[in-house]
Design a protein around this nucleic acid. Structure first.
Length: 473
RNA sequence: GCUGGGGUGGCCGAAUCGCUGAGGCGGUAGCCUGCAGAGCUGCUUUAUAUGGGUUCAAUUCCCAUCCCCAGCUCCA
């Protein structure tokens, strides 16, 4: 299954598509910025996680063994405020949203990461890096007791975001109270305790306080993946300052290249506007599920647009995605039910074309749109052959296997219901309808069919006899 | 203000300096069917924001204009 064709990925560092070459042959180590567990994640968050899932699945399809680390940010202003508001310990508060997050990604068929390190479980590792930065003179203790990274001491600062330090809009959103920093662009590695933090603090060699935001990713990624690893992903908003700062503090500490390939996904809009609570177009996954949408439909919609393209989420798009997924499932269902005896050579041609086109498109920086078009082309042409009984049962089984392999990347078809287990009473209804049909008692036949439909059983009369399948909600 | 991305048919969304620009969804007509569903076929589809320029040839390159979006210190 492994092909030798290289994968091209767009690297934010170079702003170019580059041929991907992992550090260790046949293995990929990737780190993706996970959620801050202070609330339910929204569909914009999931676009990022779905992009990363697609990337990982594609690497695996290509035969790489992927080690995937996704952090959970459980210590920052928002989690502290949230837990204080509810009057419960920080850990209890973040545990709740972490659990919700795991439920959500399961619903979206996102393959789990190998490790989900939490910031609060890695304070000693962070302290170690900060100590090293202090000893190297690239970090300093401010008047407020906090420890800051001195951006001026890291000449490469800005290489990821392509922002020049001197051109940053000084003071735009910088806390005016932060006089403790030597330079406005310096960022906190360790935040000294303040009364607002309440009982959230760690007594460390750095003093009483809590870690800055960026340091957790440096500490946890290098702990689980090493000082240099292959891929680091996140949303575009993380590019600056978060990832830029990660690079600065990590590379300053290790004197090694931190990450070879940086990949960032674009944001989504909802109905043409930035998603925000103010516009009333802010949706968590749960909001959409409550409206009755299948999470897999949402998955399909969110992966079907290229990850570096801004994506406009609409409910019309969701309906469209639902129909597209249904088309794929219908096709796979047909394959299961195929009873043909004639093997056609054309099948092999179409199959080869599909594999080559799908693979080639995905290799090109995950060009899903073209990859999907090759799948739909294949489905249409195969359906035509199935219509005329030019596919043998064995061929259909092979194609079914291929579709499952492809779905190992897309993750939208899943297990398609085949008619195996009909409960006795439902079976009796189907039989009854058949008798009514044979007697040309259409009225009764249609009534039973409607009744079954209401129970989620869809009947189909075909030339080969009656078929049924469960309707996917 | 600075930096970056983008404007393709009813909607979503590919691709490319030239073989009359994929695919999905929707609508519609036909085939099939008792009907429906699924599927197939045709049509919708002489769709590349606007105006210039370069070129044998541009949707693709350049310039200008209009519009949308993003980043500019803790929001995926």
């Amino acid at each position: 299954m492994t092909t030798n064709e290289p994968i091209c990925l767009f690297n934010t560092l170079s702003r170019k598509k580059e041929t991907f070459a992992p550090i260790k042959e046949g293995q990929v180590e990737m780190y993706t910025c996970g959620p801050t567990v202070y609330d339910y994640a929204h569909i914009g968050n999931f676009r990022a996680f779905l992009f990363e899932d697609l990337l990982k699945r594609w690497l695996q399809y290509k035969g790489y063994k992927v080690t995937h680390v996704m952090n959970l940010t459980d210590i920052d202003d928002k989690t502290i405020k949230g837990s204080q508001k509810q009057g419960i310990p920080l850990r209890q508060y973040t545990d709740f949203y972490a659990a919700a997050f795991f439920e959500d990604i399961k619903a979206l068929n996102i393959a789990p990461a190998d490790v989900y390190p939490r910031a609060t479980d890695h304070i000693p590792e962070m302290v170690q890096i900060i100590k090293k930065l202090l000893s190297k003179g690239v970090a300093y203790k401010g008047d407020d007791g906090s420890i800051y990274f001195s951006v001026a001491k890291f000449p490469d600062y800005g290489k990821l975001s392509h922002l020049k330090v001197g051109e940053l809009k000084a003071g735009a959103r910088v806390n005016q109270d932060e006089y403790a920093k030597e330079e406005a662009q310096d960022f906190a590695l360790w935040k000294a305790w303040t009364p607002e933090d309440g009982d959230v603090y760690w007594e460390t060699e750095l003093g009483k306080g809590r870690p800055g935001w960026h340091i957790e990713c440096s500490a946890m990624s290098t702990k689980y993946l090493g000082e240099t690893f292959d891929i680091h992903c996140g949303g575009v908003d993380n590019m600056f300052p978060h990832h830029e700062n990660e690079i600065a503090q990590t590379e300053a500490a290790t004197d090694k290249t931190f990450v070879n390939y940086w990949m960032h996904n674009e944001h989504l809009q909802v109905e043409g506007k930035k998603m925000s609570k103010r516009f009333g177009n802010f949706y968590t996954l749960r909001d959409l599920l409550a409206k009755g949408y299948d999470p897999i439909t949402i998955r399909y919609l969110l992966i079907s647009t290229h990850y570096r393209q801004q994506f406009n989420f609409t409910f019309e798009g969701l309906e469209s995605a639902k129909a597209a997924v249904e088309r794929l499932r219908n096709f796979v269902r047909r394959l299961h039910e195929a009873e043909g005896t004639i093997a056609t050579e054309k099948v092999a041609t179409l199959t080869a074309k599909l594999e080559a086109c799908f693979s080639g498109s995905m290799d090109d920086d995950l060009n899903v749109a073209v990859a999907l078009s090759s799948v739909f082309d294949f489905v249409r042409e195969m359906n035509a052959l199935l219509d005329t009984n030019l596919v043998s049962k064995e061929q259909a089984a092979d194609i079914g296997g291929l579709m499952m392999r492809i779905d190992g990347v897309l993750g939208v078809i899943g297990k398609v219901e085949v008619e195996e287990a009909l409960s006795a009473d439902i079976d009796a209804m189907v039989q009854k309808r058949e008798e009514a049909r044979k007697a040309k008692n259409w009225k009764e036949a249609d009534a039973i069919r409607a009744q079954l439909k209401a129970m989620g059983i869809v009947l189909e009369d075909t030339a080969q006899g009656i078929r049924w399948h469960k309707e996917k909600k």
